[in-house]
Design a protein around this nucleic acid. Sequence first.
DNA 1: CCTGACCTGCTGCAAAATGTCGCAGCCTGA
DNA 2: TCAGGCTGCGACATTTTGCAGCAGGTCAGG
Lengths: 177, 177
Amino acid sequence: MPETRFLIVDDDPVFSRVLARSLTRRGYSTRVAESAEEALPVAIEFNPHLVTLDLKMEGETGLLLLPRLLEIQPDCKVVILTGYSSIATAVEAIKLGAVNYLCKPADTDEILAALEQEEGNPEQAIAEKPMSVNRLTWEHIQKILNENDGNISATARQLGMHRRTLQRKLQKRPVRE
Amino acid sequence: MPETRFLIVDDDPVFSRVLARSLTRRGYSTRVAESAEEALPVAIEFNPHLVTLDLKMEGETGLLLLPRLLEIQPDCKVVILTGYSSIATAVEAIKLGAVNYLCKPADTDEILAALEQEEGNPEQAIAEKPMSVNRLTWEHIQKILNENDGNISATARQLGMHRRTLQRKLQKRPVRE
DNA sequence: CCTGACCTGCTGCAAAATGTCGCAGCCTGA
DNA sequence: TCAGGCTGCGACATTTTGCAGCAGGTCAGG
């Protein structure tokens, strides 16, 4: 079988290494880029079929890289993989052409499944429980932050909360559950 | 100006009515459907330009309705609007062709903004203030509390917050801001 | 009538989150 | 180069929580 080239874009070396090993063992040819800036040239040269892309990285965000990646490699499948997930960025990512959006931690099987999932299946189960207040708050913050292009000060003002507080909230993980 | 037809698909009559009034006041021609089943014939006859679609409804889910709606009206813009949001369904919805995905509670401005976002509308009258986190939280609490017939304990459980905390919050004002 | 299962209000305390100030470094447009 | 806006962060006084309990009330079944 012809090799399948897999590009991992993530600034967490530990995560990247583990994933890369796991993929290599499954027969993929893998490459790792540790930032959006680094990823672009690698993508041009490596010409990957599949990509996992972290959103929150040092420097440029993955959301900016995504369209450029697809411009270069229109056929490659990109799955977003992030620890700071939110509906707002998920919507953005899918609109920009990602084939799926996963929350870390995600194991290799999940990632591959997400990449291979062809068309949307409307079967999705809908959560029976309403969102927790914390979750709702997180989603709202992400959404407004997004609208403000990541400007924390402006977001805090609109949200009627102190910049310091927003800052602290953002450093934490999104609400699990 | 030619009328813009707006279809609201939601099984919460209170919500639908409020939204419909608000939209009518802004010059839209509105119709309401209370279930996915009911929405289809209405859509065929009404031929809407814009749609808000609730995911979790009695009977069929909105996610199943979405593709059929777009089949009938390929040009209409659908925004998903639900209180039971999740990243998984958000991804699905966007893949299936929704232009956006919002978490309830969302006000009329948000909904319209979400619908227009896609249009490459460079204008983007950005400014309407988004809801403050506190207000959002308050609205959400009220809604869940309502669904639970005022049962504080049950509500607290669903909301993932301590009963005592909910209790204290409820004693305070309805959020000044 | 008693009992168990829940709800509700309320008190106290310790832990965690927030509101405030301030400072220094960075950019950016004037 | 300067003014002004953003960002990260430290420190500290306040508030807001999470938790554990207690007493009373309601309701359904035994």
